[in-house]
Design a protein around this nucleic acid. Structure first.
Lengths: 127, 127
DNA sequence: CTAAACCTTGACGCTCACGTCAACGCAAGC
DNA sequence: GCTTGCGTTGACGTGAGCGTCAAGGTTTAG
């Protein structure tokens, strides 16, 4: 299958797929005219990347999962490196939740009363 | 006070202050040699901007607060526009909290078992 | 034969809040 | 007079994950 079909089946764009390749997440053999040719297996890889991005992992963080699938495992998160990423992300999420709860309380307080109030330190939770 | 002193007293940089000015958040009269000259009042404005950024508001969102202070109010969030920003932000934070809790449960589940699991839709909570 | 619909690489655009030069002027201490 | 440390404007860089041309080659349907 060529890049357009893979993109359509994965619900993404050719640009994204080329970007993944440039990042070393995806590989493709080339046909004689230089077109990329993908296998069914690659659809699985793309879907893995997408679902991980959906939970807020960076592309960088998806590497171990892709490698895990490439290594032949049935699921991308059955390898130690992948599970470590999960743990790191969980810690991040927990920290973010704490922070957002603090912010929430601050906002609620400011909306309820009009008293000056001490402000927390910094913020930059993403994902 | 000149820009360097204001930056130091506010714990920020001259670059940031010039940027605020370019965004219309801060104004300064100029001395004969072209140097910016700030009043004590401006320190208050900068602090307001900083504390709002600390709770995750964008610079754009700090405008009403700054305007409120400029209008002579004792606190930047005593004006309707400011309070509206608070409400919008609170809604954002709540949505983000929901999303992060979903993500958290997903991560915990994946770490606990190794079963395949349906993945949520999209993510992009910031602040 | 031609137009449409694919594919290729390369390169700039986007968001946000500045950081980091570059190249210069001004002021003060020695 | 020279250095040091202020200030000025302008312009490009940063990160993430692509979007969006640009300028071409290829394949297929009519």
């Amino acid at each position: 299958m060529r890049i357009g079909e893979l993109a359509k089946r994965a619900g993404t764009t050719t640009r994204a797929l080329r970007f993944y390749e440039s990042e070393g997440l995806l590989e493709a053999r080339r046909t004689s005219n230089g077109y990329r040719e993908y296998a069914e297996h690659d659809l699985r890889l793309v879907r893995e990347i997408q679902s991980l991005q959906a939970v807020g992992l960076s592309l960088e963080d998806t590497r171990p999962f892709v490698a895990c699938l490439r290594a032949g495992h049935e699921s991308g998160d059955s390898c130690p490196d992948s599970r470590e990423i999960y743990r790191r992300k969980l810690a991040e999420v927990d920290a973010c939740l704490d922070r957002l709860n603090t912010v929430r309380e601050f906002l609620v307080a400011r909306l309820a009363f009009q008293d000056p109030c001490v402000v927390p330190e910094e913020i930059q939770c993403s994902s």
